[in-house]
Amino acid sequence: MSDSKNTRRGFLAASATMAAGLGFVAIAPGIRLIEAASAQGKLASSKVRYGLLIDSNKCKSDCDACVGACATENGIVEKVANPRQRAQWIRKINLVETSTGKTHSLPMMCQHCAKPPCVDVCPTGASFKRADGIVLVDRHICIGCRYCMMACPYKARSFGHQALTTQNPEVPRGQGCVEACTFCVQRVDRGLKPACVEACTNGAMIFGDLNDPNSDIYKRIREVSSRQVRADLKLDTGVRYQGI
């Protein structure tokens, strides 16, 4: 593929060539990149709206399989001295109804709102929503201001308080940026379910396309009564709960 003579050229020679043809330098990468971009793979589509239905009746209060699976898949395994500074993309919340004492247990994570406050408040546009409804952080332009953490009604986001070396290759994480549940976007893009859903042996989590009439989640949401957390804020969350 490559010309062996070229490999021996020094940087000075390369730079001289560049200096000689600034016009080439200015235009060429663009052309090459369009060519390189005509790649395989589907792109996220706005026809799809990914969502998650969680049945708190089936969720056991002493089970945190979803949390462990998330940690393994996304490499959230670092040791953090102050537990309040530890990143948690998904957490189990145990609830007690104040009036009746009835208890519930459920996993809480980024609710992947259709109108996400984090995206509204992000000064640089690092918080963004993909066409298919997955809310992500662009770590390349996140400046770490934490305004999104102030604005999120679900406390779904964590801040990278320390430098990391234990990232999984497909899940970049690091110091100084804000992060949250991605619906395991690296898996979803390949047609897999998020790690938490796959790990839930109680069948309490259904993942799928909220817009697809043939999907399990679509059918289920039509059958049972489910609700969005903090529905009063009208954020149109992608994660729905049943049984609370």
Partner: peptide, 12 residues
């Protein structure tokens, strides 16, 4: 493209 559009398993 990968991050914003979900393009995976590309040459680059």
């Amino acid at each position: 493209r990968t991050m914003r559009m979900g393009e995976r398993d590309t040459k680059v």
